[in-house]
Design a protein around this nucleic acid. Structure first.
Lengths: 351, 351
DNA sequence: CTGAAAGCGCTAACAT
DNA sequence: ATGTTAGCGCTTTCAG
């Protein structure tokens, strides 16, 4: 029988395939999924027909019946950051290999959007949620909605300071420590710090690493050259301008964000500062542009792909464990320092 | 009654709410959706209880029954490009205001992934698909799968050269023309061109715009300073190196991609070329980094947010029209040239 | 304005 | 190895 124009868009169901093969829809369902109790011959026959008739499964029906969507929900502040898109790539890699789909959403660093997304994910019955929280997310009420309905949550990178949740983070303290220590080793004396939002553990830890290195080298911590909420290009430009007008201006910068570090670097160049001779800069995240900009920017590599992969693995562990909520996983990834031109000067004799 | 630990994760259904209010599930369903035949008092009562019981709708069930997912599927090559993430932002804005969700997927510029994603979207019964095709997508077989099941498709930016589909594109020819004309006006004499994949209309058109400007100024087109498939940073670096070794090396570049333009710019700086005095560079897309790099890079603004908005609008038009496939929409967005340092030199007298 | 009943397409006990 | 049956949670006629 030829295609019927009257029902051109009526997609075939397993029932249709079943009647065409004089068998039952359970057999079709099983055959399509390669169930072991179905004969190879039947599997072949069913799959051939399915292809011929252009059959595709109705996920809504399958999800409804089985109670499982085989989908991981991923929430990030924004998708156009290399860091996050790499995390997502890592998640996709592991999820796909385990038969899960990935649903990507961005909160735009907005807690209302984040809340909304979580609601949608609950409605969609995602198997688990992997989240890097919005910057202003200081309470976890909307995240607890997931607990209430039994959906596991794994935090990555930007985690809440609540040890009852699984998380995959880098050792931010160490990353910041390495960066600051490196600047000190290069002979810089007054190292400024652009921190982030102190709500977030990651920025707290980066600050702590900065302070640890200074202490270790006997350098006094000077609050006048530390600023918080300095994460964007614009904020970085603005802030460094102010710092450079101080009587005791800094001669180096460790920024918790590549973007604000870039803002500083561009400003300093515009006023004729020689980088790295007179001023050293180290950022954080290894955004692609850090290797393009001139001078190339030193930065801390967070191994974003690994963060994503590990977050997905933790997630799958939970999903496959019988008692889903008895295992708390805290994975910590080691950051590495990438030294480029912006901080690599010949060490001065008068160090 | 207190929470029952035995069924802690049994999410309430409309049936549960119905029995608690001594009404029917149809009434609950209608009330939750604000159906006009339900009294305001009842609507209030139902919504209050729903909130109290932490009810959330089961989308799988709703989709299955209603046959509509109210979801727009979006497929882009990669999400970590400002251009695409802005398009997505535009789509999200319009979709959300019309009550649609957005499902984001990336093809990684891989036709197999793209095919796979389309399959998944069909299974998920998305209402429509908005796609910017993978670079190697020269046949539309996998896209025709969508037609077969009656899912409308809207192309944006990277469209197939097949007028039966709706598309939202910029006037690439004009953008390229403006860029090249500008370089000529600045007195550059030998303008090279980094083109993209000639499968894609956008790159074909950019090439055409480049040629149009040259012809208009009586400059002969020289294939030795035109290269194709030069879209990445690395390719740009490599290619400009070769061009600069020619006997008749170019003194300017119009690149169809900001990334390859950046590669060229960085290489030229590394060999001491003075930009823009001795060499002019114009890119394409207005990626964020173009305004950071030094010298700032001139580029063509594609108005990515508008592309996304328009693509979503075209999509909604189709979905709301009774005869979904009788309207072909071709929207063309006007690009604008952004002149920055990399091409803005004092016009020489010997022009 | 509300209720009863049917069924979307699929999966999974249970039967054979 | 396959068929029968029930039902996931919702929406939607159709009837009051």
């Amino acid at each position: 029988m030829e295609q019927d124009n009257h029902q051109k868009y009526n997609r075939p169901t397993i029932k249709d395939l079943a009647s065409e093969l004089n068998t039952s829809s359970s057999t079709i369902s099983r055959a399509l999924r390669g169930h072991h109790t179905i004969s190879d011959a039947m599997i072949q026959k069913v799959r051939d027909l399915a292809k011929l008739r252009n059959y595709s499964v109705n996920r809504s029906a399958a999800n409804l019946r089985s109670g499982s969507s085989m989908t991981l929900g991923v929430i990030v502040p924004r998708i156009n950051r290399d860091f996050f898109s790499n995390c997502i790539a890592g998640i996709e890699e592991i999820a796909k290999s385990a038969g899960y789909s990935v649903l990507i959403s961005q909160s735009h660093d907005n807690i209302l959007d984040e809340s909304e997304i979580i609601k949608t994910m609950i409605e969609g019955n995602v198997s688990a949620v992997l989240i890097s929280v919005a910057i202003k997310t200081s309470n976890v009420k909307h995240i607890e909605q997931l607990d209430k309905v039994g959906i596991p949550v794994v935090f990555f990178d930007r985690a809440m300071d609540d040890s009852k949740y699984c998380k995959v983070v880098i050792d931010d303290l160490k990353g910041a420590y390495l960066a600051t220590k490196h600047l000190l080793d290069m002979g810089y004396k007054r190292i400024a710090h652009f921190a982030g939002d102190m709500n977030l553990m990651i920025y707290e830890n980066r600050m702590a690493g900065y302070e640890k290195a200074l202490k270790e080298y006997g350098v006094k911590i000077d609050p006048t050259i530390i600023s918080t909420n300095t994460l964007t290009f614009e904020n970085g430009q603005e802030q460094i301008k102010q710092f450079m007008q101080l009587k005791k201006a800094p001669d180096a910068l460790f920024a918790a964000s590549d973007f604000s570090a870039l803002g500083a670097l561009i400003y300093l160049k515009s006023i004729g500062t020689n980088i790295p001779k007179d001023f050293g800069v180290v950022g954080f995240s290894n955004e692609t542009f850090t290797s393009f900009v001139s001078p190339n920017m030193s930065t801390v590599n967070q191994h974003s792909l690994d963060i994503g992969r590990n977050a997905a693995k933790v997630c799958l562990n939970i999903l496959e464990s019988p008692s889903k909520f008895n295992m708390i996983n805290h994975v910590i990834i080691e950051p590495t320092l990438i030294v480029r031109e912006s901080s690599q000067r010949i060490v001065l004799n008068n160090k």
